[in-house]
Amino acid sequence: MPTQYESGAETEGSHSDWKLLLAAVECLHGRGFTGLRAIPHHGPVGYWRFAVTPAANLTGGVSFPPRGDDAVFTVSAGGFPTVGTLRIGPETTVDRVADEILRHLGSAAAVTSADDVAYVEWYSRMRLRAEQVDGRPSAFSDSDSTWRLGDEATDPPPGWVEG
């Protein structure tokens, strides 16, 4: 049975929406799209944002800024409960969110080009820890360049270079 999360209120504070997004990227990694990279971060007005792009579009395969914005899928907590054109609700599965992310990224070849086992394993550990501490991950904000899971500092992905 597909994994489901209960969607929270349509506010920036919804905990289940970010967990659903993290799980969707891990789902895509499991489908073989190991060239996908997720960059969670806080934008200028404080909203949590989640960007997904092929490794080839990032410095060193993992770091922002992207080389081109047209190969980046981005969602902002200010836009929840919508992810792309998918409206998130109690019945929304991880698979449906994964499909929506992939639909917006274009070439399947670009998202499978980097077979980076170290990144995929790091991502899985990061997602699990984020859920354990109930802390939304963030690579950076206007005032901080430390990878965090909520208030807890965490290791960046392999190869991470500060932008």
Rank of each mutant, 00 (worst) to 15 (best):
F80H: 14
F80T: 11
F80V: 14
F80Q: 12
P81V: 13
P81R: 15
T82A: 13
T82R: 15
V83A: 14
V83P: 03
V83F: 05
G84F: 03
T85S: 14
L86H: 09
R87H: 09
R87E: 11
I88H: 09
I88D: 09
I88L: 15
G89P: 07
G89T: 13
P90N: 10
E91A: 15
E91Q: 15
E91V: 06
E91M: 13
T92D: 11
T93H: 13
T93A: 12
T93I: 10
V94R: 03
V94C: 00
D95K: 10
D95M: 07
R96Y: 05
R96Q: 14
R96D: 11
R96G: 06
R96K: 13
V97E: 11
V97G: 04
D99P: 01
E100D: 05
E100F: 06
E100N: 04
E100H: 04
E100K: 04
I101D: 01
I101P: 01
I101F: 00
L102N: 01
R103Q: 12
R103E: 14
R103Y: 07
R103V: 10
H104Q: 13
H104P: 02
L105D: 01
L105W: 01
L105C: 00
L105P: 00
G106C: 02
S107Q: 12
S107R: 12
S107H: 06
S107C: 09
A108K: 13
A108T: 13
A108W: 05
A109R: 11
A109C: 07
A110F: 06
A110Q: 10
V111Y: 01
V111E: 04
T112S: 11
T112E: 12
S113Y: 02
S113G: 03
A114K: 08
A114C: 13
D115H: 06
D115W: 03
D115G: 02
D116E: 14
D116H: 07
D116M: 07
D116N: 04
V117C: 12
V117K: 15
V117S: 14
A118N: 07
A118P: 00
Y119A: 10
V120L: 03
V120H: 03
V120R: 03
E121K: 14
E121I: 05
W122I: 00
Y123K: 08
Y123I: 07
Y123A: 08
Y123W: 10
S124T: 12
S124W: 05
S124K: 15
S124C: 11
S124F: 03
R125K: 12
R125F: 08
R125P: 01
